[in-house]
């Protein structure tokens, strides 16, 4: 099998285990490529990709752009951090305008859950858009599929497999698209998942997704092989969920002392950007067992794999 089962990458939810394994294989080859002296391949020559970002992003956008350039695609960037872009017409119109200039793929970040699904559905009914491929680069509090792919790829690389591995996702689960996509990806690959954080930041029905729930961060760390520590997303909280960052870091922040108390070494991950001293202390973030920068490197390879496989899947 060398084809994905989907036309767009809207979420991990829609992928099969085989899709993810194919993406991993492809990403491994691309990782080898980007470590060569000449890092560029001609795979996506003559493919034009627009990175359309309706929300602020630094690393995801850079990572996508680099992945696109390494594949020799032509790249254009559009960003409008203006959250007052409220009308869907504006979204579809904006994208249609870009597509009218003969763009093949849209990489989109948007603040609304399901915005890429809405876009893909709307485009399917248009002349300019029906062949376009949509890649979700984060949609509100819903999914961030490429982040989950690069996270699981990084664990896979480190541990050889995900089957039976224990992964704790720690922090603000309620507002995190990274957490949701990771849960879906990890489960598809056979890992066990635990979520940990203040109870106000855990969705009430999260255990119905088949994950363990732990309120004590020390117990979560002791349980897991891998701890994926999430950024505390103050900007996405419309309501107060905990009293102070100080208290959060005291009770849920991970530092070297906490890690030293464990009777084993665990892998530490973070999707970035780190709030140093809040969810992760500097000494923990920079420790040897932290693979945070490997994640960043793998991000480029994984995104190359996503774009390559979607571009080569011819529209029906």
């Amino acid at each position: 099998m060398n084809r994905l089962s989907v036309k767009h990458l809207l979420g991990i939810k829609d992928l099969t285990r085989e899709d993810i394994e194919l993406l991993f294989q492809t990403a491994s080859s691309f990782k080898e490529v980007i470590n060569r002296p000449i890092k560029k391949v001609p795979s996506l020559r003559d493919i034009t990709i627009a990175n359309v970002f309706f929300e602020n992003s630094t690393r995801t956008r850079l990572s996508f752009e680099l992945a696109e350039k390494r594949l020799s695609a032509d790249v254009i960037n559009f960003s409008s951090s203006n959250s007052s872009v409220k009308k869907g017409e504006t979204l579809v119109d904006t994208v249609q305008n870009i597509l009218a200039m003969k763009v093949d793929m849209i990489v989109m970040r948007h603040g609304s859950p399901g915005a890429p699904h809405f876009l893909a559905r709307s485009l399917a009914n248009t002349k300019t858009g029906k062949h376009a491929v949509v890649v979700n680069a984060g949609d509100g509090t819903h999914e961030h599929p490429t982040q989950a792919l690069l996270d699981t790829f990084s664990i896979h690389e480190k541990l050889g497999t995900l089957e039976g591995k224990k992964v704790a996702i720690i922090g603000d689960i309620l507002h995190s698209r990274v957490a949701l996509s990771n849960i879906f990806a990890l489960q598809k690959l056979g890992a066990e998942v635990m979520v940990c954080g203040p109870n106000t930041l855990l969705p009430k029905y999260i255990s119905d997704l088949g994950v363990k729930v732990e309120l004590d961060v020390d117990k979560a760390l002791q349980w897991c092989d891998v701890a994926n520590v999430l950024r505390i997303q103050l900007e996405r909280q419309q309501i107060k969920y905990f009293p102070s960052l100080r208290e959060y870091s005291l009770y849920f922040g991970i530092d070297r002392k906490r890690l030293a108390r464990l009777d084993k070494e665990i892998i530490l991950m973070h999707p970035g950007p780190i709030n140093r001293g809040v969810e992760l202390s500097t000494d923990a973030a920079d420790a040897d067992n932290a693979i945070i920068l490997d994640q960043v490197e793998n991000g480029v390879a994984v995104r190359m794999a996503v774009l390559y496989l979607l571009a080569s899947k011819k529209p029906d």
Binding site: K13, T141, H142, L180, Y205, L209
Partner: peptide, 21 residues
């Protein structure tokens, strides 16, 4: 129900959407 978009339950959790309990 503030900011709620759909029924609060396993499906709203799956969609990352604020639920109306």
């Amino acid at each position: 129900s503030k900011f709620g978009q759909m029924h609060e339950g396993v499906n709203s959790t799956r969609l990352g959407m604020k639920g109306i309990p």
